[in-house]
């Protein structure tokens, strides 16, 4: 389901692969499609193919599951917060597998703070909206939508609040990934290390 559109060809021989031009040997199996793939990996020696393959499979699945949690939240265990965290975890998995290329930023140009801010705006406005109908702040109502013979759908207005929370949490997790994940990795690379030294504090 996530096959790269252009399969990277080339025999894994000792010599440079003759086929697709100037790809260096260390990059010949680099993923070339962008959607749903882990991003560029700065150091190919750090790649773990199993995790990458698993991440390709799991990333969309976990996202769908998070949306399920979001919708399920009103009647069962779930909701915007847990949904958002699960979706955030999908991004964390992708980060661990594929490095700090954030797909939302690189592909859709959405910065994490904007995502968080939008979520908060949606949530607050949802909270304030009932005032327009003369109801108390944060009141909610239920819409019953019937689809004839296909059944019906109960939509609760607090779902919008949950959507806001969902976006907010994803934004926050992505921001955390950027500052604590990519940021620390970048600091370490700039310091010429592959990972932060393990001897941080504690020994006293």
């Amino acid at each position: 389901m996530t096959t790269p559109s252009e399969a990277p060809p080339g025999p894994p021989g000792d010599a440079d692969p003759p086929g697709p031009g100037d790809t260096p040997w260390s990059r010949w199996d680099q993923p070339s499609g962008r959607w749903m793939l882990p991003g560029a990996c700065p150091d190919s020696r750090e790649r773990t193919l199993v995790l990458e393959a698993a991440a390709r499979l799991l990333f969309p699945t976990v996202l769908v599951f998070s949306v399920y949690l979001l919708f399920e939240g009103h009647y069962g265990p779930g909701g915007g917060f847990s949904g958002g965290l699960v979706a955030g975890l999908a991004f964390v998995l992708r980060h661990i597998a594929g490095g700090d290329d954030n797909i939302l930023v690189s592909r859709f140009g959405i910065r994490p703070p904007v995502l968080a801010g939008t979520g908060l705006v949606i949530a607050v406005l949802t909270g304030l909206a009932p005032v327009l109908w003369g109801e108390p702040v944060l009141a909610s109502t239920k819409w019953h939508i019937s689809f004839g013979s296909f059944g019906y759908l109960d939509v609760v207005s607090s779902l919008l609040l949950d959507v806001g929370v969902y976006l907010l949490i994803i934004g926050v997790v992505l921001d955390l990934l950027r500052s604590l994940g990519s940021g620390i990795a970048r600091d370490a690379r700039e310091a010429g290390e592959t990972a932060p030294r393990p001897d941080t504090g504690g020994g006293r």
């Binding site: 703070p113 801010g117 979520g119 908060l120 705006v121 607050v124 109801e135 108390p136 702040v137 944060l138």
Partner: peptide, 27 residues
């Protein structure tokens, strides 16, 4: 009276909304 009651929530919700908007327009 509901409007006045809604007013009580505004000191909490308005800055929160402002914070969110401020993040969105952050550049």
């Amino acid at each position: 009276m509901t409007l006045l009651q809604a007013f009580v929530t505004l000191p909490v919700l308005l800055p929160m909304l402002g914070a969110a908007a401020s993040v969105i327009v952050s550049p």
